[in-house]
Simulated scan of single mutants.
Amino acid sequence: MNPNNFDIVSTQSCIVGESPLWSVHQQRWYWVDIPGKTIWSFDPASGLTRSWACAEMVANIALTTAGTLIAGMESGIFHLILQDGPAVSASLLAKLPEAGPGIRFNDGRCDRQGRYWSGTMFMYMAAARDIGQLYRYTTDAGLSAPVVSQLLTQNGLAWSPDGKTMYLSDSHPQRQLIWAFDYDTATGTPHGQCVFADMTSMAGRPDGAAIDTDGCYWICANDGGAVIRFTPEGKVDRTISLPMKKPAMCSFGGSNMDEMLITSINPDPQTADAWNGHSLIIRPGAQGIAETLFPAEA
Rank of each mutant, 00 (worst) to 15 (best):
P161M: 08
W22K: 11
V227D: 04
M57V: 14
S19T: 05
M125Q: 13
C110Y: 06
R238T: 12
T38N: 14
D212N: 02
A145C: 00
A55E: 15
W275D: 08
W29E: 11
Q12T: 11
N222T: 14
L152N: 10
S89G: 00
N266Y: 02
S46P: 02
Y135D: 05
Q133D: 06
T138G: 13
N155P: 13
E297S: 03
N276R: 09
R112W: 11
C194T: 14
E18R: 04
F105R: 04
G156W: 05
R112G: 07
D214R: 12
G119Q: 13
A203V: 04
V236Q: 02
D207T: 03
A59C: 14
G102H: 05
L143E: 06
G253T: 09
M123H: 09
Y137L: 05
D7H: 10
Q174T: 11
G156Q: 03
S144Y: 10
V16F: 08
C220F: 05
P267R: 07
M202T: 06
A296W: 08
S255F: 08
A197Q: 02
I219V: 15
R115I: 12
W22F: 15
N2Y: 05
L134S: 00
P269T: 06
R109W: 01
E259H: 05
A274D: 15
D170A: 02
L168K: 02
L280D: 08
C220A: 15
W29N: 14
L143I: 06
G47H: 01
N106T: 05
P206A: 03
T120Q: 06
D84G: 09
A158K: 13
L96R: 02
P35C: 09
G163N: 01
Q150E: 08
Q176P: 03
S201Y: 01
Q133T: 00
K37R: 14
G285L: 02
P295R: 06
G100H: 09
G114W: 07
M249P: 12
I178C: 06
M125F: 12
D258C: 08
G114Y: 11
G108F: 12
E291Y: 01
D162L: 04
G47F: 06
T200W: 00
N155T: 12
F78C: 12
G67K: 12
V227E: 00
I211Q: 10
A226I: 01
E56H: 00
G47D: 06
P295D: 12
D184I: 15
I262A: 05
D43L: 14
I178L: 13
N5S: 12
A290G: 10
A71L: 12
R136P: 01
T153Q: 04
C216P: 04
M57W: 02
A290M: 14
I34A: 05
A226C: 09
F6A: 07
R283K: 13
G192V: 01
I219L: 04
V147S: 02
G17E: 04
S255L: 13
L80T: 08
F181T: 07
W218L: 06
T231Q: 06
Q154I: 04
P86N: 12
I103E: 04
K235A: 13
T49F: 03
G119S: 09
T64K: 14
I8A: 15
K164Q: 13
A296V: 11
F42S: 03
L151P: 10
N266A: 13
F105A: 12
K37W: 00
D162N: 08
I211M: 15
D212Q: 10
N266M: 08
